[in-house]
C-alpha cells in the first residue's frame, strides 16, 4: 500500500535520509523508531507529499507522489489521516470545528451529518461532549485525543502518527497507545507511526524499522527487534548511555 524507494533528502546541507527503502502492507502498522532528529518526521512528511525528495520515490495507493498535481495530491491526502506531534489543532476553531473541518471543506455533507460524525469520533477517543471547547482549554493528552479524532474523521485508509506519546505522562501515553490499537482494530487502517518511545513501539507496532544515519538499519517484527544482535539497535531499545551511540 505504501512503497518508499531510495529516498534521499538533505536539509541545511545535512543528509537526513540517505536511501530509505520501506514497504507497508495493507492493514499493517509499521513503527519507525530512531533517535531524535534522525529524520523520522521528515520521512512521514515525504509519505504525505509535504516534502519533495532529492531522490527516490514514494508510492501510495499505486500512485507515485511526485508525479501528481496538487489537486490529485489533495484527493489522495483525503484518504489519509495524520496525528501530528503537537496535535496541530487550529487555535481559532473549537474542538468540534477542528474535527469536522475536513468534512465541511471537502464533502457535501450537511451540518447535522457532520455534527453526528464529529460527536461519534469524539466519543471513540473518549472526549464525548467536549466539542464546544477551545483547544487551548485541553490538556496535552486530550489535545492528542482530539487530534486523533480529527485524523480519523474522514474514514482514512492510512493513518500516520508522528510521535503519538511524546510529552505525555506514562499513564496518558498508555491510554493513547490503547486508543491507537483499538482504532486499528475498528477501522482496519494501514498505519505508520514514528516514535522513540519503545513502550509505544512494542504496543502498537506489527513491524518495526529503525532509522539511523539516514538509513533503515533494522526492519522486522517486534520479536526480531528484541533479539537483534545489532549493538546500535540493542543500545537504543534498552536506552543505555554506553555503546556505539553517544548521548546527544
Amino acid at each position: 500500500m505504501i512503497a518508499i524507494r531510495g529516498l534521499v533528502k538533505s536539509l541545511d546541507h545535512r543528509v537526513v535520509l540517505n536511501g530509505v527503502d520501506l514497504d507497508v502492507a495493507k492493514g499493517e502498522t509499521l513503527v519507525v523508531i530512531g533517535r531524535s532528529c534522525c529524520g523520522k518526521s521528515v520521512l512521514l512528511k515525504h509519505v504525505l507529499g509535504l516534502m519533495k525528495p532529492d531522490a527516490g520515490t514514494v508510492t501510495i495507493f499505486g500512485k507515485q507522489l511526485d508525479q501528481l498535481d496538487r489537486a490529485h495530491l489533495y484527493e489522495l491526502r483525503m484518504r489519509c489521516g495524520v496525528l501530528f506531534q503537537g496535535g496541530a489543532l487550529f487555535d481559532s476553531l473549537t474542538v468540534a470545528e477542528n474535527v469536522g473541518l475536513g468534512l465541511s471543506e471537502n464533502t457535501t455533507k450537511s451540518k447535522s451529518e457532520i455534527a453526528d460524525i464529529v460527536a461519534e469520533r469524539l466519543e471513540w477517543v473518549g472526549l464525548a461532549g467536549i466539542g464546544p471547547r477551545a483547544p487551548s482549554d485541553l490538556s496535552g493528552g486530550m489535545r492528542k485525543r482530539a487530534a486523533l479524532a480529527r485524523a480519523i474523521a474522514m474514514d482514512p485508509e492510512i493513518v500516520l502518527y508522528d510521535e503519538p506519546t511524546t510529552g505525555l505522562d506514562p499513564i496518558t501515553a498508555e491510554g493513547i497507545n490503547d486508543l491507537i490499537v483499538r482504532l486499528r482494530e475498528r477501522l482496519k487502517v494501514t498505519a505508520i507511526a514514528v516514535t522513540h518511545d519503545m513502550n509505544s513501539a512494542f504496543k502498537i507496532g506489527d513491524r518495526i524499522a529503525m532509522l539511523h544515519a539516514g538509513k533503515i538499519i533494522f526492519d522486522g517484527s517486534v520479536d526480531q527487534l528484541r533479539n537483534s544482535a545489532d549493538p546500535i539497535v540493542q543500545q537504543f531499545i534498552v536506552g543505555a548511555t554506553t555503546g556505539p551511540l553517544e548521548p546527544l
Binding site: 512528511k45 504525505l48 509535504l50 496538487r70 489533495y74 484527493e75 491526502r77 483525503m78 489519509c80 489521516g81 495524520v82 501530528f84 506531534q85 503537537g86 496541530a88 489543532l89 487550529f90 487555535d91 473541518l101 475536513g102 471543506e105 471537502n106 480529527r150 474522514m154
Partner: peptide
C-alpha cells in the same frame, strides 16, 4: 500556524 504544523495539517486534510 506554520511552526506548530497547523498549515501542514490543513494540507493533509485536503484543504488548500
Amino acid at each position: 500556524m506554520r511552526v506548530t504544523e497547523q498549515i501542514d495539517a490543513l494540507e493533509v486534510m485536503g484543504v488548500d
